[in-house]
Nucleic acid binder design. Structure first.
Length: 260
DNA sequence: ATGACTGGCCCTGCCAGA
């Protein structure tokens, strides 16, 4: 089965691109981030007409995540545990039943954290700690788990075209990268890196200064697999063609194929 | 060297993104 993640930067602006992606490669599950709308404004009818069940955790104006699935969705839980004061819609988890089993999927929109030295960066690191604690608990279930989303983390130098340019950015801070490694060290696999160790595999290109044309990208959209999911990993794809469309998202979809 | 897009909202400059 094909499980994808995509930060669409407004589902309203990107609906045609999204429907095109649902038609081809026709993923079984899609985790969306930055839908930038409330639940009621999500284009549910259009997505359902394409053959998908929908779970949404939206927010007015910013953030917002969703999970689309060709298979039934159960046990839907919005919000990352650990901070009742956190009202930002950045996490949605659900269980997707597949023929002969199930896979637990989370759609994650990890805080950007810029500028560093502010409460925004503190919030990012705290959010990463909460994610790590929750991810630790999920491992105990011994299920196939896919934690998919826009992590806003550049894991290492291979994942950025111009490291010096990002040296003072929240996405590439040593503390940010260490928190990401701590998450992996629990026992999760960065699906892309399990399949391909080359540099220059990017998932985001800024709108500004011709970043796409110059291939000045970064890899910040990741799918993390529990051991039970990693055992069934077949391959990973970065769907770069969507970045060349008219009025694209600045992120492209990334997908894993699992033998499930 | 510098600046540079895009989307949403309080409808119009401003915040947020990365």
């Amino acid at each position: 089965m094909l499980i994808a993640t995509w930060n669409v930067n407004s589902v309203k602006q990107r609906l045609e691109h999204l429907l095109g992606f649902l038609a081809d490669p026709a993923p079984d599950v899609v985790c969306l981030q930055e839908i930038k709308c409330v639940d009621e404004a999500f284009p549910r009818l259009e997505v359902e007409a394409a053959g998908y069940n929908v779970a949404v955790h939206g927010q007015k104006g910013f953030n917002g995540v969703a999970i689309l699935s060709k298979f039934p969705i159960a046990d839907v839980s919005p919000r990352l545990p650990g901070d009742p004061e956190d009202v930002q819609s950045r996490y949605l988890e659900a269980v997707v039943s597949v023929p002969g089993g199930a896979v637990r999927v989370a759609s994650i929109y990890l805080p950007n954290g810029n500028p560093i030295g502010t409460e925004k960066f503190t919030y990012k690191l705290a959010w990463m700690e909460r994610l790590t604690e929750h991810a630790r608990g999920l491992l105990a279930l011994e299920e196939p788990v896919v934690l998919a989303g826009d992590y806003n983390v550049i894991p290492d130098g291979r994942d950025v075209s111009d490291p010096a340019l990002w040296a003072n950015d929240a996405l590439f801070q040593p503390a940010t990268r260490a928190a990401y490694r701590k998450l992996l060290a629990l026992g999760y696999t960065d699906a892309l890196r399990a399949c391909d160790d080359r540099a220059g595999l990017y998932t985001f290109w800024d709108y500004q200064a011709g970043a796409w044309q110059k291939n000045k990208g970064i890899r910040i959209d990741h799918l993390l697999l529990s051991p039970q999911a990693a055992d069934r990993l077949v391959g990973v794809d970065i769907h770069k063609r969507t970045r060349a469309l008219d009025k694209p998202s600045d992120h492209v979809p990334v997908s894993v194929t699992l033998d499930l």
